[in-house]
């Protein structure tokens, strides 16, 4: 564990609390893509199967894994049941098969071992890299976002961004160790946030509303 990864994980936690806060206080999931949230459930469930195989890393690691699985399922409950009327499927139109198909194929080809757990692990890494696309697509379509929603996305983006210095740090402190699947997918994932952060820094953090140029 190093500071980059710790702050990254805390930022990931923060993003979930920001999202829960947004839904609970506005009593609405307007502006949130349920497709992206469903993909996150799939990401956590397929990656954290090692909770049940005895590959114990640390209490911290296991607690975080359980939290990510639990909170992502809870968010789906809020969106699908409790605040269902505020969920507008007509603007959440990204086709999930464009994500699930290619990531499944990639996982079958590029994995560390052709076993059930390892293929699912690789799938979860590729899936996480692009899971934000339905949300960004929705943002692009509507051209605007509530400020709290942009803080959610910023926290997620910071989490991903900080994993990169974490890998650089680990490379130098752990004898040249590198996890190419995680690193390549992580760089792709971080790159997807670049446009968002441009608008976030130039508008939202200057006190303006998040609005994309027409």
């Amino acid at each position: 564990m190093n500071l980059f990864r710790l702050v990254a994980d805390l930022s990931h936690l923060a993003s979930i609390f920001i999202l829960l806060h947004k839904i609970q206080t506005t009593r609405s999931c307007r502006g949130i893509s349920i497709k992206t949230q469903l993909l996150y459930v799939l990401v956590f469930v397929t990656r954290y199967l090692d909770l049940f195989t005895g590959d114990f890393v640390s209490i911290y690691n296991s607690v975080m894994k359980l939290f990510f699985i639990g909170s992502s399922c809870y968010i789906i409950y809020l969106m699908r049941i409790k605040y269902k009327p505020t969920n507008d499927p007509s603007i959440d139109t990204f086709r999930l098969e464009y994500i699930l198909g290619p990531t499944a194929v990639l996982a079958l080809i590029f994995n560390y071992k052709f076993t059930f757990l390892e293929v699912l692990w690789a799938f979860s890494i590729y899936l996480e890299a692009v899971a934000i696309l339905p949300q960004l697509f929705m943002l692009q379509r509507t051209g605007e976002a509530e400020t709290i929603t942009t803080h959610y996305l910023a926290a997620l983006g910071i989490y991903r961004g900080l994993y990169i210095p974490n890998w650089i740090y680990r490379y130098f402190t752990e004898g040249g160790a590198i996890d190419p699947i995680a690193v390549v997918a992580g760089i792709v994932q971080t790159a997807l946030y670049v446009d968002f952060f441009y608008v976030y820094f130039t508008k939202v953090l200057q006190g303006q509303k998040f609005e994309l140029p027409a």
Binding site: R5, D9, D55, V57, N61, M64, Y112, W121, A177, D179
Partner: peptide, 10 residues
């Protein structure tokens, strides 16, 4: 697991 892919990250 020795090959550098211990999956110890979240």
């Amino acid at each position: 697991d020795g090959d550098g892919h211990s999956h110890d990250e979240l």
